[in-house]
């Protein structure tokens, strides 16, 4: 059983390495993810549009604020789920 698992893991890893040859090199400034115009917009306009110097915070709270609201709801729901499953005393 462990042999089958090992073979499956090695096959999947080999496929991922084979597919990874086409990906851009580490730190390549010409990579498609960095050349997309939205990145340039984020870096140059984040401070004038959001007023914060940390671009990650500007993205998190302003451009992707709806996503972050969902994320906070996810962690709140996880906390409530654990309370429902494990809370021992009656409230």
């Amino acid at each position: 059983m462990k042999i089958i698992a090992l073979i499956a893991v090695i096959l999947a890893g080999g496929m991922l390495i084979y597919a990874g040859q086409d990906l851009p090199a580490f730190g390549d400034p010409e990579s498609p993810a960095y050349q997309h115009p939205i990145i340039e917009h984020y870096i140059t306009h984040a401070e004038t549009e959001s007023g914060v110097g940390n671009i990650v915070t500007a993205l998190l709270a302003n451009y992707r604020g709806y996503d972050t609201l969902g994320e906070v709801t996810v962690i709140f729901t996880a906390g409530m789920t654990v309370i429902l499953l494990l809370r021992r005393r009656e409230i």
Binding site: G51, V52, N62
Partner: peptide, 19 residues
């Protein structure tokens, strides 16, 4: 932009309290 900065701080405080 300054209003946005203040409200982003408020939002961060809300996130921090929940977490």
């Amino acid at each position: 932009a300054v209003v946005s900065r203040l409200l982003i701080d408020v939002v961060e405080i809300g996130i921090g309290i929940t977490v």
